[in-house]
Every structure is written in structure tokens, then in C-alpha cells.
């Protein structure tokens, strides 16, 4: 089952309207991500990385083509079903952390579990376990504005992982962090991937992150231009 496709995009096209102009973000993109993979999406700004992540994350819909998550075609699924899919199957890590400012670190991690109606005892156990894993236990009662960037991203990772997702999508997870903190976050993501077998797809400019990826999808002008094991791509090529 190791090679089972968690994500399958088939000839996906997506355009946006920018004022009166239609901008093609993705053109005929077909991608397959296997279970347990650690995939980097690399490419210059505006190349379509975030759009591709949005489509995989079911927070946007393609103009044409099909999107399947966990073997289920979700292209035409209604919004409430997509919300359920995101809650139960996916985890999100954002460049700007996107924690709920009025909730403590503990509550931010607890939030998706509450939405999933996880019983109280199990919820508490899972929140504490993940806060410990990301080494943020001591800051459990602090709100995001009392945490550093690295700490916030750790809370965001714990929030994404506490729901036990099959697939975690991370949009530039280290872009807002200094290099030392970014390296630690990267170590954490690699460790989680290895320990849980959870699939990771992340967009990045970070060469060190690309170097640690198991596979690289190079994207340019809305097209996948290279799809290869990351070791086979020279880091400087990733942005060409």
C-alpha cells in the first residue's frame, strides 16, 4: 500500500480574474502524490505553487480536470463535504502561521479536535502529546502574540497534526522564520513524516527544505516542468 496515491490531479487547469484580465495559474497539471511522501513544490513566485496547494487542499476548485484525495474524486463535492474532508483528512500549515489570536496555544491545537467531536479525555491527551512533540508544552497557556515566530509555527504544526491527518499541506512553512528556526522546523517536519508516515506536500523557496524533500515538483508558468526525486535536481535548478 506504500505506493497508493493520496493525491491525484488529472489535467487540472485554473484561471483567476485579475480586474478585467483572466490570468492562467495552472495549465493541464497532472500530479500524483503517494502515501508517506515528502514532496516539495518549487518554482518562482507566481508560478502556481499556492494555487496547486489550494486545489489539493480542497479550498479551491479547478476550472477543468479532476482532483482526487485518498482515492475519492472531490472535484464536484459540495462545500460541506469538502469542509469535512479538510477537517478529517488534511492538515494545513501556513507561511504566516494563521493561529486564532484569541485562543491559547493549547486551545489552537484543541480547536480542530473539538470540531471533530473528539471526546474530552482523548482530546486532552492528543493536544498534550502534540504540544510535547513540537516542544511547546511550557507555552501551552500563552496566546500567539506572546510566542515567537518559530513557536507559533510549532503550534501550527501541532494543530495540523493533532487531527491525525493523512496529508499535510504546508505553504512556505519556513519563509517567515530565521534560518536557525527554519532548520529546526524542517527537522521537526522530517521527523514527523518519518515517525507517522503522514504525507507532506509543501511549497517552498527554501533550498535546505528542497534538499530534504524526497520528491520535487518543479513548476513554472503554471506547468509542472520537472517531477523527480529531489536528490536528482540541483538546488539552483529548482527556481529556474
Amino acid at each position: 500500500m506504500e505506493d497508493e496515491a493520496v493525491v491525484r490531479l488529472n489535467s487540472v487547469t485554473k484561471s483567476y480574474r485579475l480586474g478585467s484580465v483572466s490570468v492562467r495559474a495552472l495549465t493541464d497539471v497532472s500530479v500524483e502524490v503517494r502515501r508517506g511522501d515528502f514532496v516539495a513544490l518549487a518554482g518562482p513566485s507566481g508560478s502556481g505553487k499556492t494555487t496547486l496547494l489550494n486545489l489539493i487542499g480542497c479550498i479551491d476548485k479547478p476550472d477543468s480536470g479532476r482532483v482526487a484525495i485518498g482515492g475519492v474524486d472531490v472535484t464536484d463535492s459540495p462545500l460541506h463535504r469538502l469542509a469535512g474532508l479538510r477537517l478529517n483528512t488534511l492538515g494545513f500549515i501556513f507561511q504566516t502561521f494563521n493561529l486564532v489570536p484569541v485562543l491559547t496555544a493549547y486551545e489552537n491545537v484543541e480547536y480542530p479536535l473539538l470540531m471533530k467531536n473528539v471526546p474530552r479525555r482523548e482530546r486532552d491527551e492528543r493536544v498534550r502529546r502534540w504540544l510535547a512533540k513540537v516542544d511547546i508544552e511550557a507555552q501551552a497557556k500563552q496566546r500567539p502574540d506572546q510566542l515567537s515566530g518559530g513557536q507559533r509555527q510549532r503550534v501550527a504544526i501541532a494543530r495540523a497534526m493533532a487531527g491525525d491527518p493523512k496529508l499535510v499541506l504546508a505553504d512556505e512553512p519556513t519563509a517567515n522564520l530565521d534560518s536557525e528556526t527554519a532548520a529546526r522546523i524542517l527537522d521537526l517536519l522530517v521527523e514527523i513524516n518519518r515517525a507517522t508516515g503522514c504525507t507532506f506536500v509543501f511549497s517552498t523557496h527554501d533550498t535546505s527544505l528542497i534538499a530534504r524533500a524526497r520528491r520535487l515538483l518543479r513548476i513554472r508558468d503554471g506547468r509542472i516542468v520537472q517531477h523527480a526525486p529531489a536528490g536528482e535536481v540541483r538546488q539552483e535548478e529548482a527556481f529556474v
Binding site: 487542499g57 479550498i59 469535512g84 477537517l87 478529517n88 501556513f94 486564532v100 480542530p112 495540523a160
Partner: peptide
């Protein structure tokens, strides 16, 4: 707005 987007992205329904 961004917080609302985040909540919906991580699975909060529109009704919630």
C-alpha cells in the same frame, strides 16, 4: 478575514 479563511480551511463549516 484571514482568520475566517484559516478556520474554514482547517475544516470549520460555513454554518459554524
Amino acid at each position: 478575514t484571514r482568520e475566517i479563511g484559516t478556520l474554514m480551511a482547517i475544516g470549520t463549516t460555513r454554518e459554524r
